[in-house]
Design a protein around this nucleic acid. Structure first.
Lengths: 360, 360
DNA sequence: AATAATTCCGTGTGCGCACACAGTTTTATG
DNA sequence: CATAAAACTGTGTGCGCACACGGAATTATT
């Protein structure tokens, strides 16, 4: 095990001082071209790798990051994501990164804008946020771009801006996956329903992508034996209305035996289906939130697709860390695994700590 | 953002020197009880957390670890696991851990013993290995225990010894999971077959556990509508024999329409089934090796259960790191998620870097 | 040619900690 | 009571690096 190469070793071999090597490595200038070349040669020759520990220790200043997220106390999904960010903080704080949290009300576009501006006013070195609302996101992006502040999109992608990275799911592909899972459990001649339990006004792009993906699966396999219908229902918070709606739907389509719920409200559909006694339908939904998990355990939901919110939060911080501290390139799009969760492997995903920690 | 508290801060507040605080924190003794208590009080009061970076930097010595693994060039599964270990190394090397690799021929128990002894002769501070062969593993464990060398079991668990940790899958649960997946695709009245393509002499405990898990699923749901049969076939390397065997089997059981292959040889079953024209059976297998993935992509395998070999290797190193450097407690059993892989989410698991790195 | 302005380069200090060593106080021993 | 032994405590150095500062060599300006 040969000893690690230090800056001192390079300096000696190149016949200069450590200060000069430092200037070369950090591109601080004030080094003659001849010396610069010589130093880089030696660096190459000895295979120098900087000692991150010593480097971070000596650097000794704080790089402030802001995370602008939906209030985690209002929503279990965002609570998970928030937890991932917190874990990321635990890891990178050793390297002098600080993370400040700013929460907005996720049913209030204006609150996002307000909170984001507040966050940016602190002059952070980087920012993490989900660009959920087009108009407001645009404004925030513009401020970032003007100030040269790097930003990472999390959970939701957005066509505008040049984020350091997008971290989240591949919505289209998650639709394809949902189709595959439902298809496996359906027999020829049966009908599957794509059910969107959301406000159609809010109908975000990623929901459309999921539907598109779902359909494309069946188109690709050319399976005409399964018929697909699609419905949107806005009054999902009214149990009785939803039950009535589904009851009608099942009556109209006697062969309807599978549902694909495109967001995390699968539990609402189950509530309604139980009420009207339709217990034999297959159901694929999203997200490991408590209510869904209970129904998964009770064999009422067949599959949940996990969007890994915790991992998203964690990787978001890590990406900023890689960019700001390690000065590594960060992949512009980072799709996280679409985990397939059934009753029998739920615990692994629930208990999984973002136990992974860091130092590149 | 208040500044980090340092040893110096504690020393000042407690009215002692940094050396004394150091002695207390490292339990080196030679500190009067009164002073010790006072220091610990202040530590508590200020919420001191040691600076890992500075700590590792000052520690400045190398902790040698050995990894004794099956030759990764001979088997894609072990290649993946090996890769995980290598990634772990990349991460912990900053903290002064070195990892030396020792490879054995995994069809040769004696070669394991020989290589393990060779590794132990270097007096490592820790060891990582899969206790695949009972007798030989026992000997190695004894040597470790006598020398006080901590060891981590990886991939395979073993009743003897007191490993720092076991890292791998929950075999029983993976069987339950396999049953769930197959069941979802089977109709009432159909038959499922547990197929072991392995040498019965080698029949390891974890294969039995998988079978047990598979059966217990159907027992628990009290579903008598699916019949279960079980077969072992040793001549799996002879394509023709396997095809004949399966042909007979399908003739004997006309309702047979699902297979659960308990190891990574699902592709062999598909080879044979294709040959005899049985293309409509559902199939659940294990492990993301190339041949299996190809069949998954070709819609011939429905589900693969991923045992996360790469993550196993990575976590193995991390566990030793936590124990030896961070001096944290390590969980004695660390089951990794049983990932359900279908054609549509294969890439995520294949391309996934063990991108998670570390510093507690 | 003398001075000023640049360009280039080496030295020194500190980041927070681990550990060796020397120094001081207390207790044991004759 | 003197001395030896043991118990306790403070100081100093180095880990590898980042960066400030000042000095030397070179070039520009009068």
């Amino acid at each position: 095990m040969k000893r690690k190469v230090r800056i001192k070793d390079i300096a000696d071999k190149a016949g200069v001082s450590t200060g000069t090597v430092d200037r070369v490595l950090h591109k601080r200038g004030n080094v003659s071209e001849a010396v610069r070349k010589r130093v880089l040669e030696v660096v190459e020759e000895l295979g120098y790798e900087r000692n991150l520990l010593a480097s971070a220790l000596a650097y000794n200043r704080i790089i402030p990051i802001v995370a602008v997220l939906p209030d985690p106390t209002k929503d279990p999904y965002w609570e998970q994501l928030n937890k991932g960010v917190e874990h990321g903080l635990k890891v990178v704080k050793h390297y002098g990164m600080s993370v400040s949290f700013y929460y907005f009300d996720y049913s209030e576009p204006k609150s996002f804008e307000r909170v984001a501006e507040e966050a940016l006013a602190t002059q952070p070195a980087g920012m993490l946020f989900p660009p959920m609302f087009a108009q407001e996101a645009n404004k925030v992006i513009r401020v970032c771009d003007e100030g040269g502040t790097p930003y990472v999109f999390i959970n939701t992608n957005f066509a505008t801006g040049t984020p350091l990275s997008y971290i989240g799911q591949d919505s289209m592909q998650s639709g394809v996956l949902g189709a595959r899972l439902l298809d496996f459990g359906l027999s020829p001649g049966q009908t599957a329903c794509i059910l969107s339990l959301d406000y159609s006004t809010k109908a975000a792009q990623h929901l459309k992508d999921k539907e598109q993906g779902f359909r494309s699966y069946f188109e690709e396999i050319g399976n005409k034996e399964v018929q697909i219908i699609r419905h949107n229902f806005e009054a999902f918070d009214d149990d009785q209305q939803l039950a009535d709606f589904l009851n009608d739907l099942l009556r109209q389509h006697p062969s309807l035996s599978g549902f694909f719920i495109t967001n995390s409200r699968a539990h609402k559909a189950i509530d309604a289906l139980s009420q009207i006694g339709a217990t034999q339908v297959k159901l694929v939904g999203f997200d490991l939130i408590d209510k869904n998990i209970n129904y998964l355990r009770a064999n009422k939901i067949d599959f949940l697709i996990n969007q890994n919110p915790m991992e998203q939060g964690f990787q978001g911080i890590v990406s900023l860390f890689k960019h700001l501290i390690l000065k590594e390139k960060v992949k512009p799009v980072q799709y996280l695994p679409l985990d397939i969760v059934v009753k029998e492997n739920t615990d692994y995903y629930l208990k999984r700590e973002p136990a992974f920690q860091l130092v590149g």
